[in-house]
Nucleic acid binder design. Structure first.
Lengths: 81, 81, 81, 81
DNA sequence: CTGCCATTTTACCGGC
DNA sequence: GCCGGTAAAATGGCAG
């Protein structure tokens, strides 16, 4: 661990503050997201279902290349590459 | 999918896309935070300890806010606002 | 929280021991899995690729009904159910 | 998939299936553990505290084992085994 | 207030 | 023996 006190302390403080700044922005975005859900709910949509939709669409993105990956993996696993 | 449900479908899609856009930004910030921790680690700092520090400072902020809220509550109760 | 000492203590101990027993079995299975990977490695297979395969196949299982789920969700979300 | 790579493919499949079988059993045990925690919670115990207890007891076991290993090491160093 | 879900933290495992 | 990345556990937050 770097020295306690002096320049190392300033350095640590700098890192911590950068992180805290980023986390504030992240929290702000989380709040924005919450607001959008609330707005959608006010329009009559079901928040729980919307969350499921978002989750499933994210999974779909991950799956887009999954089949190819599996084939590639089998090939590599079997030394066919 | 836009044809399913007509207007409502478009509306839903709009909400979902807004959320997904915000979540992308949130993920980008999470990656930035990760990078800062990695950089700090490369400078010799202990990431686990740093995380504890950040959490502790956040809790203190939270508690401080809570105190202020209670104070406000009392002020309003006393007609001091 | 239940009383400290007396019957509650015995009860707690009983729960803890049941959990520890189950965790031992789980750890034993984890060791078995490790052994299989080691054996496969000894036969010339790449452990990292095998782990990826297992992970992707698990995802495939999860995806098996995903498309239907998504359609159902959209229908419900749009009040078409 | 059995046709890909012939014998090697079958061999790989065999390993993968053994692993998947073991992982299913492991998941079942994890579910059992979850159930015990839930049951304990229903009896009035604090699950979070219980988890800490289990972790602590495991650490103590680990440390005890470590001490015994060190003792063994010394014994061997002294030709006492 | 309770259960579920997302996030975050911790622990593990293989590789170098 | 550490490091990086990946899976598991645990905590926190949110909707109902």
């Amino acid at each position: 661990m770097a020295e306690v006190g002096g320049i190392a302390g300033d350095h640590l403080r700098s890192f911590i503050e950068r992180i805290e700044r980023l986390e504030e922005e992240k929290a702000a975005l989380a709040a924005d997201i919450k607001d959008v859900y609330a707005e959608a709910k006010g329009t009559g949509f079901d928040v729980k279902i919307m969350r499921q939709l978002v989750r499933l669409r994210k999974m779909e993105d991950h799956d887009r290349t999954e089949q190819e990956e599996i084939l590639d993996l089998y090939k590599r696993a079997l030394g066919m590459e």
